[in-house]
């Protein structure tokens, strides 16, 4: 069997009496899109936040590219090649789209302790950043501050920032959220190609997108993965249908 890129085992996280993550295990293999679905309040964001490093788990382990990263902070994980996007767009609001992406380019280069050379005229930053913006279709909005972009454009910019990190794995937290049907369709096509660059752990509510993209699907209910399998296996799993798809067994 191929070594998984990301391997999560027995993760647990409680907030007071609430067990938000209850022994969750999943893995992400090279070249795949692994969708994580679950009803509201199932603990998807809590799980993603533990994988990205924003939250520390109470128990369990996370391995990335064969290394135990459970104790590493967010920035270290990102430098190893774990790129996340946020469910609610999280950008440097005053910076233009271009500067947001340039920052990710400089982060990848590890050159943030340079104090004198102006970034605005630095082609080693602007050129790769423009390329990423073009890939997501934002090239003509490069100089617009993030705060002035439309909701959909901000979602695209989140993706461009993640691309600029040249990651080894993507964690995409509801990239379709709040996008119109047109935008969702375009993004679905884009993500379909993206898996060839790096595998994607995709948290998504848009079932059309999940069923069109996912090689495997995991279903999270009350902090527990109740099933993992191909799209058709998940669709026909009686427990999933009862717990999530809202159908009587």
């Amino acid at each position: 069997m191929v070594e998984p890129v990301l391997d999560v085992k027995g993760l647990e996280k409680s907030f007071g009496a609430l067990k938000a993550t209850n022994g969750a295990s999943l893995d992400l293999r090279p070249g795949e899109i692994h969708a994580l679905i679950g009803p509201n309040g199932a603990g998807k964001s809590t799980l993603i936040n533990q994988i990205s490093g924003a939250l520390a788990p109470d128990a369990g382990s996370i391995r990335f590219l064969g290394t135990d990263i459970t104790m590493l902070d967010t920035a270290r994980r990102a430098r190893m090649g774990l790129a996340r996007t946020f469910q609610i767009s999280s950008l440097a609001q005053e910076f233009s789209a271009l500067r947001n992406v340039m920052l990710a380019v400089q982060a990848r280069q590890g050159t943030s302790l340079r104090f004198f050379r102006p970034v605005a005229s630095d082609v080693s930053l602007t050129e790769p950043a423009m390329r990423m913006l073009s890939r997501v279709g934002l090239a003509d909005r490069a100089n617009v501050p993030a705060a002035a972009l439309s909701h959909g454009e901000r979602r695209q910019l989140e993706i461009a920032v993640a691309l600029a990190m040249e990651p080894k794995a993507f964690l995409l937290d509801e990239p379709m959220a709040g996008m119109g049907p047109e935008g969702s369709k375009a993004l679905t096509g884009f993500l379909d190609g993206l898996r060839r660059e790096a595998p994607i752990l995709l948290v998504e509510h848009d079932m059309d997108a999940v069923f069109a993209l996912a090689d495997r699907v995991s279903v999270l209910v009350y902090g527990r993965i109740i099933a993992t399998g191909s799209v058709s296996e998940i669709r026909n799993d009686p427990e999933v249908r009862r717990a999530y798809l809202g159908e009587p067994a």
């Binding site: 400089q106 943030s112 302790l113 970034v119």
Partner: peptide, 21 residues
């Protein structure tokens, strides 16, 4: 500079800065 960009991003959105490494 690059440092200035990172510092201003730390003011605007530290979670974003950490997420890119």
């Amino acid at each position: 500079s690059r440092f200035g960009a990172a510092l201003e991003a730390a003011r605007q959105n530290p979670a974003r800065l950490a997420a890119i490494g």
